[in-house]
């Protein structure tokens, strides 16, 4: 009986800690995708979990725990991206990604698609969704480094274009080229490895 008050005090804390920690692998997956560096991703997730446990009183239950943790992770990722941006980027790789010859080659001299985008089945149909997400993740991992970084800053972290330009120090025109390259490459990659592959097995 004498233990009861202590149990009451400690139980919610340890449950909260366990709940937070249970999201570790999911958070790590997001961090790895964006940062492309396992050690850095581990660090960022560790910082996220520590921050979450420290500020547990600010978790009001208004959102799900998962959403709250992803919110903290986003800030930690942005901090890491700022630190990364201070390191010199091999200029040649960015120059290559900003060249548009390969994108122009997707169209004929009249600007018409050489290979027209085909109609896909709805990728959010429950039967195919997991497969679509798996292929998409692989396609993102195969994007060139700078292209992947800004695309994920836009779509995964949810920054607007001005914020991205400020963090990575590129012009808005260059950012538009990289985002176009990312979307066109992912579209083609999914066409090839998801849409056509699914067609073959049907």
């Amino acid at each position: 009986m004498s233990l009861r008050p202590r149990e009451r005090r400690h139980d919610p804390t340890s449950t909260f800690e366990a709940d937070v920690t249970s999201h570790r692998s999911g958070l790590l997956r997001i961090a790895r995708l964006q940062l492309r560096d396992d050690d850095l991703a581990e660090d960022v997730v560790q910082e996220t979990l520590i921050a979450a446990l420290r500020s547990r009183t600010s978790f009001t239950g208004g959102s799900t725990l998962k959403t709250w943790l992803v919110g903290i992770l986003k800030h930690k990722i942005i901090d890491a991206l700022r630190r990364l941006a201070r390191e010199p980027v091999p200029v040649s790789s960015l120059d290559d990604e900003l060249r548009t010859d390969d994108l122009n080659a997707l169209f004929d001299e009249h600007g018409i698609w050489r290979a027209k985008p085909q109609s896909w089945e709805d990728p959010f149909d429950s039967a195919v969704q997991v497969d679509f997400l798996r292929v998409l993740e692989e396609c993102v991992e195969n994007l060139p480094a700078n292209t992947a970084r800004v695309f994920l800053m836009r779509e995964l972290v949810g920054l607007d274009t001005q914020e991205i330009c400020a963090v990575v120090s590129i012009s808005s025109n260059h950012l538009a080229v990289l985002l176009y390259r990312a979307r066109m490459s992912l579209r083609r990659c999914l066409d090839l490895h998801w849409h056509h592959a699914a067609g073959e097995t049907r």
Partner: peptide, 8 residues
């Protein structure tokens, strides 16, 4: 593609 990254 945008929606799917949000799901990831």
């Amino acid at each position: 593609i945008r929606e799917a990254v949000a799901v990831l």
